[in-house]
């Protein structure tokens, strides 16, 4: 932010069953897709980052859900069998 980059913050707000990162964990993403932190063991980060880019440009927060029941979740792979809810918002 201090360097003039637009930034989004993704936060794990709810987990069910076995989840790799506890509630409150953060992933910080900039407009170029650089990121720091984690919301899972690397399984859904790619998808969260893509959504975060949209959030950065649009400014509206989003709630994302990942779990085994979800087709795409298998593809991005929450293989541990848990489910997580991730809140993505723009900073500022």
């Amino acid at each position: 932010m201090a360097e003039g980059r637009d930034v989004a913050i993704a936060t794990v707000v709810e987990t069910w069953g076995s989840a790799p990162r506890p509630v409150g964990s953060h992933l910080v993403i900039d407009e170029a897709g650089n990121f720091e932190g984690s919301v899972s063991g690397g399984c859904v980060e790619g998808s969260v980052i893509a959504e975060a880019m949209d959030v950065i440009s649009q400014g509206t927060p989003r709630m994302l859900e990942f779990g085994v029941a979800d087709e795409t979740a298998w593809q991005v792979g929450l293989s541990c069998g848990g489910r997580i809810k991730v809140y993505v918002e723009r900073l500022g």
């Binding site: 707000v13 709810e14 509630v23």
Partner: peptide, 11 residues
């Protein structure tokens, strides 16, 4: 208060 006590984040 509960959150501070437990130290756990929640919805």
């Amino acid at each position: 208060r509960q959150a501070f006590l437990s130290g756990k984040s929640s919805l």
